[in-house]
Computed example of a mutant assay.
Amino acid sequence: MSATSTPYISFPGNASEVLPYYAELFGGELDIQTYDDMPSMEGFPFTPPPGAVAHGTMTSPTFSLAGGDGMGDNLPVLDSDVYSFLLTFDAEDEARGFIAKVLDGGGSEGMPFEMAPWGELYGQVKDKFGIRWDVNVPAQG
């Protein structure tokens, strides 16, 4: 089997704000297609609001993410501890730099970045959109 995996998030109507944030955070390339860009919405089971993101991708050398705006009355809630993205960095300074960027961008600390009982540096931050990032640096040597 040959497959790749990219997380896909249905955003609560703010994909046009979230995806550029992640492109800046990770230094990635961004491609966004709105429903307005589509030639015809005929036959779709819903009518998207103006400017809604149909599909977007953020691709960086280390992380890729895809998503679009959720539709309907019960839009998804992103702020949850039932999922997170685990980022493993090679060096402590890179991990601390990522955490600082998230915190400086309006995020919050969930668990301090420090030595964990299993012998690796570990911490948690939530970005300003409620996505939790688990940050890890494996034990050296």
Rank of each mutant, 00 (worst) to 15 (best):
Y35K: 04
Y21C: 03
A91D: 14
R96D: 03
M115S: 13
G107W: 01
L121H: 13
P49K: 12
F98T: 03
K101Y: 13
Y21D: 06
G107S: 12
G130K: 11
P61W: 02
P76C: 04
G43L: 02
M58A: 02
V18S: 07
A91P: 00
E109H: 06
D81G: 12
D90G: 14
Y22R: 05
D37L: 08
D31S: 13
L87Y: 12
E29W: 06
F46T: 07
E114S: 14
A3Q: 14
N14D: 13
T88V: 14
L87D: 10
P76Y: 02
L103S: 11
L25G: 11
E114C: 05
S2G: 11
S5V: 14
S60P: 09
M115C: 07
Q140D: 13
S60T: 14
G72N: 00
L19Y: 02
P117V: 09
K128H: 08
W133A: 13
F85Y: 13
F85T: 12
L87M: 15
A54L: 13
Y8P: 08
N74C: 00
Y83M: 05
A100L: 11
S84V: 02
A100T: 14
G110I: 11
L19A: 05
E114Y: 13
Q140A: 15
E120F: 09
D93V: 14
L25W: 07
T62R: 10
M71Y: 01
Y122L: 08
Q140S: 14
G51R: 03
P12E: 01
D69A: 06
V137N: 06
A52Q: 06
N14I: 13
G27M: 08
D90K: 12
